[in-house]
Simulated assay, not measured.
Amino acid sequence: MPSDKSPRGSLGKTLEDARRDAGFQTLSTRLAYSNPWTALREDIIVHPNGKQGLYGIVERGEFVVILPMHADGRITLIRQFRYPVGERLWELPMGMWETKEDVDPIELALGELREETGLRAGEMIHVGSMYQGAGYSNQKGHVFLARNLTRGETELESTEEDITCHDMTLEAFEALIRDGDLKCMVSLAAFALIRAKGLI
Protein backbone atom coordinates (compact mmCIF):
# COMPACT_ATOMS: atom_id res chain seq x y z
CA MET A 1 0.00 0.00 0.00
CA PRO A 2 1.13 3.61 -0.56
CA SER A 3 3.15 5.19 2.21
CA ASP A 4 2.77 8.63 3.72
CA LYS A 5 6.52 9.01 3.35
CA SER A 6 6.34 9.01 -0.45
CA PRO A 7 7.08 12.25 -2.37
CA ARG A 8 4.18 14.43 -3.33
CA GLY A 9 3.92 17.02 -6.06
CA SER A 10 6.54 18.89 -8.02
CA LEU A 11 8.09 20.34 -4.86
CA GLY A 12 8.99 16.86 -3.62
CA LYS A 13 7.21 17.27 -0.29
CA THR A 14 6.17 14.19 1.62
CA LEU A 15 2.54 13.93 2.70
CA GLU A 16 3.70 14.50 6.25
CA ASP A 17 5.40 17.77 5.24
CA ALA A 18 2.36 18.91 3.24
CA ARG A 19 -0.01 18.26 6.14
CA ARG A 20 2.26 20.04 8.59
CA ASP A 21 2.53 23.06 6.27
CA ALA A 22 -1.30 23.16 6.09
CA GLY A 23 -1.52 23.26 9.89
CA PHE A 24 -2.35 19.61 10.58
CA GLN A 25 -0.58 17.41 13.10
CA THR A 26 -0.71 13.61 13.18
CA LEU A 27 -0.65 12.32 16.75
CA SER A 28 -0.96 8.62 16.00
CA THR A 29 -1.80 6.22 13.21
CA ARG A 30 -2.96 2.61 13.14
CA LEU A 31 -3.87 0.05 10.50
CA ALA A 32 -7.51 -0.83 11.16
CA TYR A 33 -8.03 -3.29 8.30
CA SER A 34 -6.14 -4.70 5.35
CA ASN A 35 -6.62 -7.12 2.44
CA PRO A 36 -4.64 -7.58 -0.80
CA TRP A 37 -6.51 -4.69 -2.47
CA THR A 38 -7.37 -2.18 0.23
CA ALA A 39 -6.18 -0.93 3.61
CA LEU A 40 -7.99 1.28 6.09
CA ARG A 41 -5.85 3.49 8.31
CA GLU A 42 -7.11 5.56 11.23
CA ASP A 43 -5.19 8.68 12.21
CA ILE A 44 -5.69 10.77 15.32
CA ILE A 45 -5.00 14.30 14.15
CA VAL A 46 -5.05 17.90 15.32
CA HIS A 47 -6.81 20.26 12.92
CA PRO A 48 -5.41 23.74 12.17
CA ASN A 49 -7.96 25.19 14.64
CA GLY A 50 -6.47 23.05 17.42
CA LYS A 51 -9.35 20.58 17.66
CA GLN A 52 -8.48 16.89 17.82
CA GLY A 53 -10.21 14.42 15.53
CA LEU A 54 -10.21 10.99 13.90
CA TYR A 55 -9.54 10.61 10.18
CA GLY A 56 -10.12 7.32 8.36
CA ILE A 57 -8.11 6.94 5.16
CA VAL A 58 -8.66 4.25 2.54
CA GLU A 59 -5.31 3.30 1.02
CA ARG A 60 -5.18 1.74 -2.44
CA GLY A 61 -2.53 1.46 -5.13
CA GLU A 62 -2.44 3.69 -8.18
CA PHE A 63 -4.81 2.90 -11.02
CA VAL A 64 -5.16 3.73 -14.70
CA VAL A 65 -8.17 4.53 -16.87
CA ILE A 66 -7.92 4.35 -20.65
CA LEU A 67 -10.02 5.76 -23.47
CA PRO A 68 -9.34 3.56 -26.53
CA MET A 69 -9.84 5.59 -29.74
CA HIS A 70 -9.99 3.66 -33.03
CA ALA A 71 -8.86 5.08 -36.37
CA ASP A 72 -12.49 5.46 -37.51
CA GLY A 73 -13.37 7.54 -34.44
CA ARG A 74 -15.12 4.80 -32.48
CA ILE A 75 -14.23 4.16 -28.86
CA THR A 76 -14.37 0.94 -26.84
CA LEU A 77 -16.25 0.72 -23.56
CA ILE A 78 -16.75 -2.21 -21.25
CA ARG A 79 -19.71 -3.30 -19.15
CA GLN A 80 -19.40 -5.22 -15.93
CA PHE A 81 -21.38 -5.92 -12.79
CA ARG A 82 -20.22 -3.87 -9.81
CA TYR A 83 -21.02 -5.74 -6.62
CA PRO A 84 -21.00 -2.75 -4.19
CA VAL A 85 -23.77 -0.92 -6.09
CA GLY A 86 -25.55 -3.96 -7.53
CA GLU A 87 -25.54 -2.63 -11.10
CA ARG A 88 -23.98 -3.49 -14.42
CA LEU A 89 -22.11 -0.34 -15.41
CA TRP A 90 -20.72 1.21 -18.57
CA GLU A 91 -17.06 2.10 -18.02
CA LEU A 92 -13.82 2.89 -19.75
CA PRO A 93 -11.21 0.15 -19.29
CA MET A 94 -9.39 0.69 -15.99
CA GLY A 95 -7.65 -1.11 -13.19
CA MET A 96 -4.70 -1.61 -10.90
CA TRP A 97 -2.24 -4.43 -10.29
CA GLU A 98 -2.42 -5.57 -6.68
CA THR A 99 0.50 -7.99 -6.96
CA LYS A 100 3.00 -5.61 -8.56
CA GLU A 101 3.93 -2.43 -6.73
CA ASP A 102 5.58 0.62 -8.29
CA VAL A 103 4.59 -0.45 -11.80
CA ASP A 104 5.06 2.15 -14.53
CA PRO A 105 1.63 3.68 -15.34
CA ILE A 106 2.11 3.19 -19.09
CA GLU A 107 2.93 -0.49 -18.58
CA LEU A 108 -0.15 -0.80 -16.38
CA ALA A 109 -2.34 0.96 -18.95
CA LEU A 110 -1.11 -1.27 -21.78
CA GLY A 111 -1.70 -4.35 -19.64
CA GLU A 112 -5.19 -3.40 -18.44
CA LEU A 113 -6.30 -2.48 -21.96
CA ARG A 114 -5.06 -5.81 -23.30
CA GLU A 115 -6.57 -7.82 -20.45
CA GLU A 116 -10.05 -6.27 -20.49
CA THR A 117 -10.57 -5.57 -24.20
CA GLY A 118 -7.96 -7.54 -26.15
CA LEU A 119 -6.80 -4.26 -27.70
CA ARG A 120 -3.11 -3.56 -28.24
CA ALA A 121 -2.17 0.12 -28.37
CA GLY A 122 0.59 1.37 -30.64
CA GLU A 123 0.36 4.75 -28.93
CA MET A 124 -0.50 5.37 -25.27
CA ILE A 125 -0.77 9.06 -24.36
CA HIS A 126 -0.62 10.07 -20.70
CA VAL A 127 -3.23 12.83 -20.45
CA GLY A 128 -3.05 13.62 -16.74
CA SER A 129 -3.58 12.42 -13.19
CA MET A 130 -6.36 12.70 -10.63
CA TYR A 131 -7.42 11.51 -7.19
CA GLN A 132 -10.33 9.09 -7.07
CA GLY A 133 -11.79 10.45 -3.82
CA ALA A 134 -9.41 12.76 -1.98
CA GLY A 135 -11.83 13.27 0.92
CA TYR A 136 -11.40 9.69 2.11
CA SER A 137 -8.69 7.99 0.03
CA ASN A 138 -5.14 8.57 -1.16
CA GLN A 139 -5.63 6.58 -4.38
CA LYS A 140 -4.21 8.30 -7.44
CA GLY A 141 -5.23 7.57 -11.01
CA HIS A 142 -3.64 8.17 -14.40
CA VAL A 143 -5.68 8.99 -17.50
CA PHE A 144 -4.58 7.67 -20.89
CA LEU A 145 -5.71 7.98 -24.49
CA ALA A 146 -4.91 4.85 -26.51
CA ARG A 147 -4.47 5.06 -30.29
CA ASN A 148 -3.20 2.90 -33.17
CA LEU A 149 -5.20 -0.05 -31.90
CA THR A 150 -5.13 -3.66 -33.02
CA ARG A 151 -7.46 -6.31 -31.67
CA GLY A 152 -6.43 -9.59 -30.08
CA GLU A 153 -7.70 -11.94 -27.41
CA THR A 154 -8.69 -10.71 -23.97
CA GLU A 155 -6.84 -11.94 -20.89
CA LEU A 156 -9.60 -11.65 -18.30
CA GLU A 157 -9.04 -12.73 -14.73
CA SER A 158 -11.49 -15.22 -13.23
CA THR A 159 -13.26 -12.38 -11.39
CA GLU A 160 -13.70 -10.40 -14.63
CA GLU A 161 -15.35 -13.00 -16.84
CA ASP A 162 -18.62 -11.05 -16.99
CA ILE A 163 -16.92 -8.12 -18.76
CA THR A 164 -18.20 -7.40 -22.26
CA CYS A 165 -16.65 -4.98 -24.78
CA HIS A 166 -18.60 -2.55 -26.94
CA ASP A 167 -17.37 -0.32 -29.77
CA MET A 168 -19.42 2.82 -30.33
CA THR A 169 -19.25 6.24 -31.89
CA LEU A 170 -18.29 9.25 -29.85
CA GLU A 171 -21.84 10.54 -30.31
CA ALA A 172 -23.28 7.33 -28.85
CA PHE A 173 -20.89 7.57 -25.91
CA GLU A 174 -21.93 11.15 -25.22
CA ALA A 175 -25.58 10.06 -25.41
CA LEU A 176 -24.89 7.56 -22.61
CA ILE A 177 -23.62 10.48 -20.53
CA ARG A 178 -26.54 12.80 -21.34
CA ASP A 179 -29.11 10.09 -20.65
CA GLY A 180 -27.56 9.21 -17.29
CA ASP A 181 -26.63 5.70 -18.39
CA LEU A 182 -22.91 6.15 -17.78
CA LYS A 183 -22.58 6.46 -14.01
CA CYS A 184 -18.89 5.72 -13.48
CA MET A 185 -17.32 8.86 -12.00
CA VAL A 186 -13.79 7.89 -13.04
CA SER A 187 -14.85 7.34 -16.67
CA LEU A 188 -16.68 10.66 -16.73
CA ALA A 189 -13.72 12.55 -15.28
CA ALA A 190 -11.27 10.90 -17.68
CA PHE A 191 -13.42 11.76 -20.69
CA ALA A 192 -13.80 15.36 -19.49
CA LEU A 193 -10.03 15.75 -19.12
CA ILE A 194 -9.29 14.28 -22.55
CA ARG A 195 -12.02 16.42 -24.12
CA ALA A 196 -10.84 19.59 -22.35
CA LYS A 197 -7.33 19.08 -23.73
CA GLY A 198 -8.72 18.84 -27.26
CA LEU A 199 -7.43 15.32 -27.86
CA ILE A 200 -10.79 14.04 -29.13
Rank of each mutant, 00 (worst) to 15 (best):
M1H: 11
M1F: 11
P2L: 14
P2R: 14
S3N: 10
S10V: 14
G12Y: 06
R19E: 08
D21F: 10
D21E: 15
A22P: 02
Q25S: 14
T26Y: 06
L31W: 02
P36T: 13
P36H: 12
W37S: 15
R41V: 12
H47Q: 15
P48Y: 12
P48W: 13
N49P: 01
G50H: 10
K51W: 13
K51E: 15
Y55R: 14
G56I: 09
E59S: 06
E59V: 13
G61H: 03
F63L: 12
V64S: 04
V65W: 00
P68M: 08
R74F: 02
I75H: 06
L77I: 14
I78Y: 01
I78T: 12
R79S: 12
Q80N: 07
Q80W: 07
G86D: 01
G86L: 06
E87A: 10
L89A: 05
W90C: 02
E91I: 00
L92Q: 05
M96C: 09
T99V: 11
E101D: 08
E101T: 08
D104G: 08
I106F: 03
L108S: 07
R114I: 02
G118Y: 06
L119C: 09
L119I: 12
L119D: 04
A121F: 06
I125H: 05
I125Y: 01
G128R: 06
S129D: 13
M130D: 01
M130H: 05
Y131S: 07
G133D: 11
Y136G: 07
S137C: 04
N138Q: 09
H142D: 02
V143E: 01
L145S: 02
L149A: 08
G152Q: 11
G152T: 10
E153D: 15
E155I: 05
L156T: 01
S158Y: 14
T159W: 15
E160M: 12
E160A: 13
I163K: 05
I163T: 09
H166S: 05
M168S: 04
M168I: 05
A172F: 01
A172S: 11
E174A: 02
R178I: 02
D179T: 05
G180R: 05
D181A: 03
L182Q: 04
L182N: 03
K183W: 00
V186Q: 06
L188A: 02
F191Q: 00
F191L: 11
K197Y: 01
G198Y: 03
I200W: 06
